[in-house]
Design a protein around this nucleic acid. Structure first.
Lengths: 148, 148
DNA sequence: GCCATGTAATTGCGCAAGCAACTACTTTGC
DNA sequence: GCAAAGTAGTTGCTTGCGCAATTACATGGC
């Protein structure tokens, strides 16, 4: 076991920890958002990303990147949200291939209702993870990212 | 904006970063493992978890927890791997409801072939993420977890 | 011993994801 | 100008997931 092998093992361990924490948080958010606002995590992510965007509109590809989804999945995700009246498609004037998505009133309203649930659930999940020995260091590190 | 509101925003930002990094790594691993060993990330996770277990066997529920999957998904995941001859089901003697899964020779062999690919891809993904300003601090923090 | 309750794993079903093929539009090269 | 190559978004198809119901076994109360 040389230094190099250790580094490999440290990375693998770090990745497992990251995946575990991610899974925990996502599952908790999924459940909470589903029951509070009938939104999945990605759906919330879209609404949230749109609301934090200047002008409140984004192109499909930006959305795909923001959600780490394929473009086909993004299309159908936007379809679902549009069918529910939470956002609208707007054709790009300058590039007629492109499509902007924009939050509707209803979308903003739902997001405002969902955000506290999201934030609280996130806080709870992180707190819970902090009492899991395996996850605790990563949670601390996460909190220290911007926190000073 | 009080201190409390800042904390909320820091957590949300941290979560987005975590999710983004997780997504990047998972996508890269998915592609690499798929083409190198015809394994998905969860499938690799199962083989790897089994190999790092004393006696090389785990119960379905442990596997479900290790992979952050539902029990039904775990059943089908084990089915797939069993059909390919990579692991076998073994009935528990002491609790006849329980089922142990155990790596076969072929499973161990495939894992040994896949592991270098996994580790290299992980290293590359982390290196790539380090040059993304948003992700860089988290990658550093991850490396520092066990790394000293 | 026996019934009620609880737990382990599996199966039916609906849904959302990715890939590949396609359409529509834009840009590049000549 | 116009053909060739590139880019944005959508659709058909397959696959894997979670939830809820089910089967098989274990455990506690009496």
């Amino acid at each position: 076991m040389g230094i190099k092998d250790d580094a490999v093992e440290v990375r693998a361990q770090g990745w497992r920890t990251l995946a575990a924490l991610h899974g925990n948080i996502e599952a908790a958010l999924e459940k909470a958002l589903q029951s509070a606002a009938d939104l999945s995590v990605v759906e919330y992510t879209v609404l949230d990303a749109l609301s934090r965007q200047d002008g409140w509109h984004m192109r499909m590809q930006q959305l795909a990147r923001a959600t780490a989804l394929s473009s086909s999945a993004t299309t159908r995700l936007v379809n679902r949200l549009e069918d529910r009246g939470l956002l609208t498609r707007i054709l790009c004037a300058d590039d007629r291939r492109g499509i902007y998505t924009e939050l509707t009133e209803a979308g903003q309203k739902l997001l405002l209702a969902a955000r506290p649930v999201h934030d609280e659930t996130l806080a709870e999940s992180l707190a819970a993870a902090e009492s899991v020995p395996e996850l605790e260091p990563l949670v601390k590190a996460l909190g220290a990212l911007q926190g000073a």
